[in-house]
Amino acid sequence: MERTKTVLAAAAVAACLPYLALKLIWVAGGNLGIPPGSPLREEGTALWLVNILTIAMDGTVVLLVLALTRPWGRRLPAALLALPLWIACGLLGPIVAAFPAQVLYGVLSGGAGQDSGADELLDGWVWTLVYSGFTVQALALGALFVRYVHDRWGALLRSPLHPDIAAPDRSPVLARLGFAAAVLLTLPCVAGLTTQMADQSADRRIVDAAFLLYTLVALAGVGRLLRTGGTGGTRGAVRRTAPRLGPTLSAAWIGSGVLACWGGWLLLGALTGGGRPLGQQMSTGTLLAYACQALLGLLLAAVGAQQLRHRARLLRHRPAPGGTVRQDA
């Protein structure tokens, strides 16, 4: 077990190094992997700051690996780990889904339909190196995260999605209103993504399709969490096929993270100029789609977190077998 954890940690850290090295070279003024004529060769404070930010973000992955593998990481407050891990899952999630699909499509199509603007921005080997590293990061960090959560909160994840409560309970009104608002917000978000897909390269369409997939995953996950207030079923009955909390919570976690983090990142790049070197024309519709995507993710995350707190209160105060009310810690 410990050997596997060590291998995963080493793989995650090693996968960070190529990206960190390239970013440090670029911040220092080097042009390794940047072809002549690329917009990235132009001096710009916004682009320099974006590079600094991405160095910090990749460095945070190394810190997360240590927190997930060292004994002191088990003593950290849950909230201190939750936010950076949610961001990491959100940013790496689409890469795991889209990059292998892009590679496979490129092999099968002989490169037809690929994004020519990407090669004008950076040499082809840079994209392959960086996104291969991100994929390894995601898989290794994800495996470490799963092991950490299993060791620390395994009982919670294995608990029934719909715990038996003496009387059926309803989710808080604010949670239901928030989810209804999220469903309405999905309409302009999906419309923006589908409109972009019509005029994009095959590579970009694959990425947008991944975003659409995660939108559905997030909505399904949070929607199911809203029904965790109780089933009103027969108490004490053993239901081996009863759904567990883990899969639903995972869907809500990664889906909301993808929407919030990528929507926010793309919007930041568009507003600061950090996204313009990618050759994208930032229309009002595109900016609106990014803003809706970020807001949708944040709203779903807030609804999911509120519903988890609601679930915890239900389980703390549910009647014990003798008829008294539990006051679990």
Rank of each mutant, 00 (worst) to 15 (best):
7 V>I: 15
15 A>F: 06
26 W>D: 02
27 V>N: 09
28 A>P: 03
37 G>Q: 03
40 L>C: 02
43 E>C: 00
47 L>Y: 09
53 L>F: 15
58 D>V: 15
59 G>W: 13
68 L>S: 06
79 A>N: 09
80 L>C: 12
97 A>Q: 09
100 P>V: 08
100 P>T: 05
106 G>Y: 13
106 G>C: 08
106 G>R: 11
109 S>L: 08
110 G>L: 09
112 A>G: 09
119 D>I: 10
120 E>N: 11
136 V>Q: 05
139 L>H: 07
140 A>S: 14
161 L>K: 03
167 A>L: 11
169 D>F: 10
169 D>A: 15
171 S>W: 02
173 V>G: 10
175 A>P: 09
185 L>C: 12
185 L>H: 05
187 L>N: 05
196 Q>N: 12
203 D>I: 03
206 I>A: 12
210 A>P: 12
216 L>M: 09
223 G>R: 04
224 R>L: 15
230 G>W: 06
232 G>F: 04
234 T>S: 13
236 G>A: 11
239 R>N: 12
257 G>E: 05
261 C>S: 15
262 W>V: 00
264 G>Y: 01
272 T>V: 00
280 Q>G: 04
290 Y>F: 15
290 Y>C: 01
291 A>H: 03
291 A>W: 03
292 C>D: 08
292 C>Q: 03
293 Q>K: 05
295 L>H: 02
296 L>E: 04
297 G>K: 02
297 G>L: 00
299 L>G: 07
303 V>N: 07
304 G>V: 00
305 A>I: 08
312 A>M: 02
312 A>H: 11
324 T>G: 15
